[in-house]
Simulated assay, not measured.
Amino acid sequence: MRAAAGHTARPVAGVLRKDVTVQVAAHRKPRQRSLGRNTARTAATLALAGAATATAFDGTGNAEPQLTPTQVKAKVDKLYQEAETATEKYNGAKEQADTTQRRLNSLRDETARKQDKLNSAREALGSYAAAQYREGGIDPAWQLALSSDPDQYLDGATFAERAGERQAGAVTRVRQQLREIEQLRGAARIELKSLRSRQAELKRQKKTITGKLAEARSLLARLTPAQRAQATGDGTAPGRASRSASDARADLEQAGSTAAPGTRAAAAVAYAYQKLGSPYVWGATGPDAFDCSGLVQAAYRSAGVSLPRTTYTQINAGRRVSRSELQPGDLVFFYSGISHVGIYVGNGRMIHAPNPSAPVRLAPIDQMPFAGATRVA
């Protein structure tokens, strides 16, 4: 009985041990699940915190402090001025590129003409050489001896000698033409290199301009329409621009014949009035859109006066006048880098193409730093 009892006790103990093991395992499992849930919550919290931190770093979560309309206007004005400086550099590079392209085209045309002339001369020399080859198989002394008419032969020989001298001159001219063509090709290579440099400059300035304008648009997009009108200086009610133009024309007529220094200046001013409301487009010279120097150039072109393309060359295109001497038709320039220009129309006002946020308009010359004035007609 003891042995049986002892034998019976071991399975019981085994069962007990198995039950304990099961209970321990069962006890651990829920704790692991609970730890898993905590870990998931912790991971989620860390992930959100990380996302918030990353967002703060890339500037999309914690936005930069809200700018006031006045601050936006200051930043936008600076961007527009920088873009206009780049625009004038672009205009200058384009003018030079166009001039270089015309020179290159002229060189290529001249080279083609000389090449045609050279080809004709070569054909003539080729015919002469072929004839000499055909007739040169017999020594001239034998030709004389075998000739049935020696006098006629001698006359022919004299003619051939003179013809040979003429052909020698032709050869000299061909060689000269070859040298000229090579010189033209060398000049064309130089012009082509210059053109590519100008085109690279155009690309750089265009990138600068578009970047500045895009940044300005982004800033303005944050504002309400009313704030945007304040920031761009366009606080006029609908129809105000046309009434201002009428008022300015009346002022010009009221001033009499002394309002403009000459008929060409008056014609340029009249053209500028006609273009009020036209859009600003950088690099444009009309007739439907303009940048600042493009408007000035187009206005005087309509009056029969040819002006350079850029602000920094236009200021030297006429006689400098002081601010106190201003008359309608004078060109007024702004900023230290001479990056903006308008046409003075009297009473302290000008017509100018301001920037992409505003069309061609009337404006006081006091709204920008005055840099000088020029009278071109």
Rank of each mutant, 00 (worst) to 15 (best):
K193G: 08
R10I: 11
L219T: 00
A163N: 10
A371G: 02
Y312V: 03
A43V: 13
T232E: 02
V22N: 09
K78Q: 08
A200D: 09
V360G: 06
T224I: 08
K206Q: 12
T53I: 06
M1Y: 06
A200P: 03
D19I: 04
R122M: 06
L125H: 09
Q81V: 10
I190N: 08
Q367Y: 05
F159A: 13
R264M: 11
Q205F: 03
R189Y: 07
N119R: 14
L146I: 02
K18S: 10
D149G: 03
E123S: 09
A267R: 14
R361M: 15
D291H: 03
G6M: 12
S246D: 15
G233D: 00
V15A: 15
K89M: 10
L67N: 00
Y133F: 14
E161Q: 13
A237Y: 08
A157M: 11
D139C: 01
A229R: 09
V22W: 05
G59I: 07
E201Y: 01
Q205N: 07
K73L: 02
S306Q: 10
I190V: 15
E110Q: 15
L220W: 00
R319F: 01
P261Q: 05
Q96Y: 03
D98G: 07
Q227N: 13
Y335H: 15
A131R: 06
P287G: 07
T232N: 02
A363L: 06
R301N: 03
V269H: 11
G346D: 11
K193L: 11
G92A: 13
R249G: 05
Y80Q: 06
D251A: 13
R162C: 01
N91K: 12
P308Y: 00
S127Y: 09
Y344V: 03
Q199L: 12
D366M: 04
D288S: 15
E182G: 10
A245T: 09
S218H: 12
A241R: 09
A248N: 13
I138A: 07
F333I: 12
R179P: 00
A47G: 07
G262F: 09
T68L: 01
L144G: 10
S218V: 11
V341R: 07
H340C: 03
